[in-house]
Design a protein around this nucleic acid. Structure first.
Lengths: 219, 219
DNA sequence: GGACTGTATCAACACCATGTCGATTAAGTC
DNA sequence: GACTTAATCGACATGGTGTTGATACAGTCC
């Protein structure tokens, strides 16, 4: 089904069949159109024709640049994820030396900010996940990265005696990372029971701290 | 778009246009076919024709019984939710008097078991949510129920001095309930970073207990 | 037992979105 | 100025959805 590919120069193999000329602009135009339309309506209500029209080309021509609507979104998500990875590096450094509490807050803040700034893209990615295996794989990787970071932090804190023992670090990390994903998604989507934007971080940080540093058998 | 409706006797207005005769069997056959097919493949890969064929009728006849594929799934989900509501009542009672810790564990256990026993339906519901507003509303209601239950428990525990103050009870409840949803979904779907089936409850209960009973500023 | 009513059924149709094919134009090379 | 290769699109094939209209098939009811 989905092949590997990977074109000449650009560090991104989704779409384009080995090109060179002014088609770069068109590719951009399609991506920009997609982001613009996602501000207005969900992915499911955007057709290939909408993207083509928005980029000033016909529908068949669209397929010259991308193999499908999904591929367009995945390309955009790729970049969002890459940006988020940047702040993750940074946060990890902060976390490494200095107060892990402050570092943790900063890490969660940066991550939240990264996705918040392009929430419609994040929502589209979530919409894609159930039906698109490539989207699932991409997100799996992203989650795995955060989980292993969090696992390392928890284990380090336990090793130096700052955090008590408890559930296996990785299991705890999975639950916490998934909580973050879900809570943030709900807020971005404006779901009915959801945290207000300004409250998200306070609540998440609080749960993380208690889950990591709280006594295993409280009271 | 989606109107209210609500037929004569049955406590469920989705589907059927006021009927009476042997068509009841057919309705059942459609629902059964849907559940059966969901064991095999995701909702997105099931067509109206598949449901019709499975129930031994033609596609147009399907529309005599249900207005769409989504309506079929929503009918099934309705029932799942109703069943789950049963265990919720029970769990709340357990929670009311007696050890709230044990009660909490039992509540989470029952809920997990209810959805676990029909995980493919739960997964289909999740798949529907992004595109179907009725599914979103239904799930909103369900979440709201759990959140307000959890909020009440947290407030009660704080009031009687068993739990320390902290983030607003409702905010904490939202985060915890959403964590449960996400973690359980990941496990049901067999996602890549996900908790093993036997570990889910231990981990979730642990986080709930720490989040509710742990000190606000630990260490 | 025929006229009437409402259930249940489906073939045929209209529609829409996706993805593909083939032909065509517009630039570069050499 | 013949040859490639990028870029474009009209026309088509496919596959799904939902609707229409005709029909068969009960049961009343008088």
């Amino acid at each position: 089904m989905e092949a590997a590919s990977k074109a000449s120069s650009a560090p991104n193999g989704r779409g384009r069949r080995a090109t060179r000329a002014s088609g770069d602009d068109r590719e951009r135009a399609i991506l920009d159109t997609a982001e613009k339309l996602l501000e207005e309506r969900p992915l499911s209500e955007i057709s290939v024709d909408d993207l083509a029209k928005g980029a000033g080309i016909s529908r068949p021509t669209f397929y010259f640049y991308f193999p499908s609507k999904d591929a367009v979104v995945l390309t955009i998500v790729d970049r969002l994820v890459a940006d988020a990875a940047g702040s993750r590096e940074e946060a990890l450094a902060t976390l490494a030396q200095g107060d892990p509490r402050a570092g943790l807050r900063k890490a969660l803040e940066d991550l939240y900010a990264a996705f918040r700034s392009r929430r419609t893209v994040a929502l589209a990615a979530a919409e894609l996940r159930p039906t698109n295996s490539e989207a699932r794989d991409l997100w799996s990787q992203v989650m795995e990265g955060w989980v292993s970071d969090a696992t390392a932090v928890i284990e380090a804190e336990r090793a130096r005696g700052a955090a008590p023992p408890g559930q296996p670090a990785r299991d705890l990390a999975i639950a916490l990372v998934q909580m973050n994903e879900r809570v943030q998604y709900a807020t971005f989507a404006g779901e009915s029971p959801s945290l207000e934007d300004e409250r998200v971080l306070d609540v998440l940080v609080d749960v993380w701290l208690r889950a990591i540093y709280g006594a295993p058998e409280p009271d």
